[in-house]
């Protein structure tokens, strides 16, 4: 299911949460990366019809989100960054209710509820009150509700925030498994989540699109610009002020930094093979306005 975003802007007074973003997501699992405040959630909320943009146009599967939001909702599954359920209900009741709201016929609803509970591995806990669920279980229940109605588009906003590493990996794998024939739009600021699951991605920075393409293309953006350099502890601040530090570790009283920089830092850096995180930092560090059409 193709998503086409054209010149999308959203202003809150003088704040430009989104500023002329154009992007095409042809399908598959697509990551949306960006630091906090980059505009990811705003973009997501516009896509799922919760927010009206200030200007621009979005179509999902050919349906104009602004003109026909009800049709979009009928084909949509959404897991917001923060959400909750009625704590006194159990998972089955909650999903059954949501299934009705998603216009699933009664007989089909029962089947689907059981299927999605199975899918997210909550069958055994289906009769437990949601109020007693852990964070990870709630996230899985969030996915379960999003899957009800077999939506063509799944929009997932920062799903792993607050999860422990084990739950995060399990959740990520679950997303990959269910992405199958759907379009899954995954918004996150955790590069590893995208790296492990997405076939295409875009990077937002300060409301603007900084990159759109495949993970490999993003990695290529950093090729020749990633260096390992050993510095004295006293030099740290100077280096960090001039280049983007990806990671650091202490080796024998000195500090080994992995940095992204156009030039060899301090003239003693060693070029290394770039990764996705390097590519992300490479593009998110440069805020020039660009418009890409992405072909994943």
């Amino acid at each position: 299911m193709e998503i086409v975003i054209e010149e999308l802007s959203k202003h809150y007074g003088s704040v430009r949460a989104l500023d002329g973003v154009s992007l095409r997501v042809p399908g598959g699992m697509f990551g949306l990366l960006g630091p906090n405040g980059a505009g990811k959630t705003t973009l997501m909320r516009i896509l799922v019809t919760l927010l009206a943009p200030t200007s621009g146009r979005v179509t999902i599967g050919g349906i104009d989100v602004m003109r026909d939001p009800a049709k979009v909702r009928a084909r949509l599954g959404y897991i917001p960054q923060e959400f909750g359920f009625y704590r006194s209900l159990n998972a089955y009741e909650m999903l059954d209710y949501i299934g009705t709201m998603k216009r699933i016929p009664p007989r089909e609803r029962k089947r689907q509820v059981e299927a999605v509970l199975e899918e997210v591995n909550l069958t055994a806990d289906a009769k437990r009150r949601v109020g007693t669920y852990s964070g990870g279980m709630k996230q899985r229940l969030g996915i379960a509700q999003a899957l009800l109605g077999d939506p063509d588009l799944l929009v997932v906003d920062e799903p792993t925030a607050g999860l422990d590493p084990e739950e995060r990996i399990r959740f990520r794998n679950l997303l990959v498994r269910i992405s199958g024939r759907r379009t899954v739009l995954l918004s996150t600021h955790i590069v590893a989540d995208v790296e492990a699951s997405c076939t295409g991605l875009a990077v937002l920075r300060q409301g603007r699109l900084a990159f759109a393409g495949t993970p490999e293309e993003l990695v290529e953006r950093a090729r020749g610009r990633v260096w390992l350099v050993e510095v004295e502890p006293g030099e740290w601040d100077e280096v960090a002020s001039r280049v983007q530090v990806v990671s650091s570790r202490t080796v024998g009283g000195r500090v080994q930094l992995r940095v992204v920089a156009d030039e060899n830092p301090l003239g003693r850096g060693v070029p290394v093979e770039p990764g996705l995180e390097d590519g992300y930092l490479a593009v998110s560090g440069s805020a020039q306005r660009e418009e890409w059409l992405v072909h994943v």
């Binding site: 917001p80 959400f83 909750g84 949501i98 709201m101």
Partner: peptide, 17 residues
């Protein structure tokens, strides 16, 4: 209050709810 609105606002429902 319970943040269920974040989900249900995207359901294909109208004033009936």
């Amino acid at each position: 209050r319970v943040r269920f609105a974040a989900l249900e606002e995207t359901f294909p429902t109208g004033a009936e709810v």
